[in-house]
Amino acid sequence: MSLPKGKVLKSVKIIQPVLEADCFINVPVAKVHSSAILTMGLKNLMGIVEDRDYWHTAGLHQCIADMITGFRPHLTVIDATRILLTNGPKGPGEVRNVGQVIASADPLAADAYGATLFGKRPGEIPYLVSARAQTSGEIELGKIEITKV
């Protein structure tokens, strides 16, 4: 599929079942990542693309942001029951039991809240900042309506 709003990633090959699906729900496990800082909803979309190497060579954060400009999951559910704090993404590393599951129709908002579980502000994650500038979605915590159940 083509990504007209993408800056570096202009088109991307995605696995067939995802393209054929009526509804796409993205369920990442929250963890730290050596190069992307954190893996949550946006980063997890690398799991459905063919050429991941290009993302790394062309600029990882920018490509993650470009992807969300053209491909938005209908729902993002971040599994933060246990989060990996060190030596991510592969582990093994320090694990904290958080016991939360984050769900949002806005993938940026889900990631923005998720970042706080790691003690980070959303503004510290370059791909979130770029994504906010390029497409709709909210990363400012004050503007996100958070409901705990």
Binding site: H33, S34, S35, A36, D53, H56, T57, G59, L60, H61, P89, K90
Partner: peptide, 10 residues
């Protein structure tokens, strides 16, 4: 570049 795939996979 931000890469570190080698670290990621080791």
């Amino acid at each position: 570049e931000t890469c570190l795939i080698c670290d990621e996979h080791c």
